[in-house]
Structure formats: C-alpha cells, structure tokens
Amino acid sequence: MFTRAITRRPGPEMVGGITTANLGKPDFELALRQHAVYCRTLADLGLDVTVLDAAPGFPDACFVEDTAVVCEHVAVLTPLGAPSRQGEQLTIEPELAKHKPVVRITPPALIEGGDVLQVGKIFYVGLSERTNRAGAQALADTVAPYGYETIIIACCPSLHFKTDVNFIGNNTILVSPCCDSLPELSRFQRVIVEDDEAYARNCLYINGTVIVPEGFPKTLAKVRATGVDTVVIDVSEFRKLDGGLTCLSLRF
C-alpha cells in the first residue's frame, strides 16, 4: 500500500524538454492545470502528496520517477542516463531524506526509475539507452540486503521499460506485443496493448485503483475488464515530452 507521493511542479522550461513524440510543444499553463489534477487524484486515492517547486535548469524535472527508486527500506538515487538530466537526482535528495535512508548510485553505472518496475519484493529492471547493466546491478546490490530480488531484462527498444510494461494489480500487467513473450514476465497475466494505443500502456496502479490516461478507450476497457477500479485523467501536455502517468511521481 502506498501512503506518500512526491511530485514536482513543471516549470516554464518544460517546453524545451527532451522528446521524440513529434506532438508539438507543451502548453505550459495547461500542463500546470493537468499536473494539479494529477496531484489531486493521488490525494483522492489516499496518498499524502508533496508537491515540490520547479527546478530551474532542468526542463524535465517534473518527471521525478526517473530520479530515484524508493521502496519500504531505502531510497536509491539514480544517476540519470540522459546527460541533460544528470543532477536532477540531487534536487530530490533532501525531500527523500526526510522519509528514507538515501543511497546514491554513481556513474559509470546508469539507471533511471522509468526502467524499474517493482511488484512486491521483486524489482524488474529493463535495460535501455538510459539504464545500463552496471546500473541495474548496482540497484540489485543495494536492495538485496533488504530481501528484494532483482530481475534484469534485455527488453524491447523503447524509451523506458515502463513505456512497455506496467503492473495494474491482480497479478496482471499491461504489455506491448514485443514484451508479451518475455520469459521473465511469464508469471503474470498479460494484457496486450497494441501500438495504436501504445501511450496507454503507462497506467498507474495506486492501492487497488488504476489511473488511465484520457483518450484511449480500448485500453480503458481492457483495464476495467480485469476488475479494478479506474480513474481517467488528461496528461496530454506531458505526453508531448514522452512522459506518462508513472513518470510524474515517486510513490512509497
């Protein structure tokens, strides 16, 4: 059960953030409104939500999930794989330190939280352009003393592992067609989200409810068919920066 979330308000520099989406520049004022709805939704689902101020100099800093991996026992600061984002993790450290012991992973190990899916006592880490094997192993070594297993996956060539794979409760994951056959995921019931609604693979599971991005009716129907409660919110401006629902918070 999650009880807390840390988020960061986007700043005006977000319009220059990293993107491959080709959907145009974000509308900053609309992004602020959407972020506020996102934070209220987390609060409505029972989380104590901390909203940090924007971090000047870091256009992508609203995507706080990439800066750390947080579990019951420890917060692991990640040395982000995107060069323009390195240093963001230091801006989140003081807040994390209020709640957990903090451990830093350092280069040449590279890892981003978007490549890490925690289900119970297992961390699934997908290798990507942002996460190398040294980074995945450094996380594994950090959390192993607390009883966590780490499974490192050479997965599909996406931005992040959670671009393709997300847990939605009831031993069920949303997956891309590419990831459906991964042997490391065979223990799960898998719901395939086709490429025409690829963005909606990044749903966010919070204590029995799945937050689903607006505009993806087929995925919404598939999620609801698993029996979980759902909430739909619009995050169109963050989609323009390759960012999804999980990216906008650290939950623990």
Rank of each mutant, 00 (worst) to 15 (best):
Y124P: 02
V143N: 10
I211Y: 02
N207M: 06
T142H: 06
V125Q: 05
I192N: 01
L250D: 02
L241F: 01
T106R: 13
I92Q: 05
E112R: 01
L204H: 08
D48K: 05
A5Q: 04
P83F: 02
I206C: 15
N207L: 01
V231A: 07
F161Q: 03
P10H: 09
L110P: 00
E184I: 04
P26Y: 01
S128A: 05
A138H: 11
L47C: 13
V102Q: 13
R33L: 11
K100C: 01
I233P: 14
M1Y: 11
P213T: 10
L174M: 08
D196K: 13
A154G: 10
I122R: 15
E184G: 09
D234K: 12
V165M: 09
G135W: 03
V193I: 15
G243D: 02
V191P: 03
E65Y: 02
K100D: 04
D229L: 09
D196T: 13
T163H: 03
D53P: 08
N202H: 11
T78F: 04
L117F: 07
A109P: 08
T230L: 03
G227F: 09
L52N: 05
N171Y: 09
T230V: 14
P108M: 04
V165A: 09
E149C: 01
V37K: 15
T106I: 06
I6S: 12
A82H: 15
E149H: 01
A200M: 07
A225I: 00
P79M: 06
C39L: 01
T91L: 15
A200F: 10
D242Q: 11
A31E: 05
G169A: 00
E88M: 11
V119E: 13
S128D: 11
G126V: 04
V228L: 07
T20P: 00
F161S: 08
E72V: 09
L32M: 11
T209Y: 13
R33C: 06
L185M: 04
A136L: 06
G227E: 14
S128G: 09
C247G: 08
A82S: 12
V76M: 03
A200Q: 05
N171P: 03
D66S: 08
A221V: 04
M14D: 00
A144N: 08
I211V: 15
C156R: 13
E197C: 12
D242L: 05
L23H: 02
S158M: 12
E237G: 03
S181E: 12
P56F: 02
V51W: 04
V76S: 02
L32F: 10
A200R: 06
R224K: 14
D242Y: 03
Q137L: 11
Y124M: 09
P56Y: 13
P79Q: 07
E13Q: 12
D27K: 06
V70P: 00
D164Y: 00
S176G: 03
L185H: 10
L174H: 00
C203L: 02
G87E: 03
K98W: 03
C62N: 04
G57N: 05
C179V: 00
D196M: 12
I18S: 15
A134L: 14
M1W: 08
V116K: 01
G17M: 03
Q86K: 08
E197R: 12
V191E: 10
V231R: 14
I122K: 14
E29K: 15
C247F: 12
L80H: 04
V69G: 02
R104V: 03
R224F: 08
P12E: 15
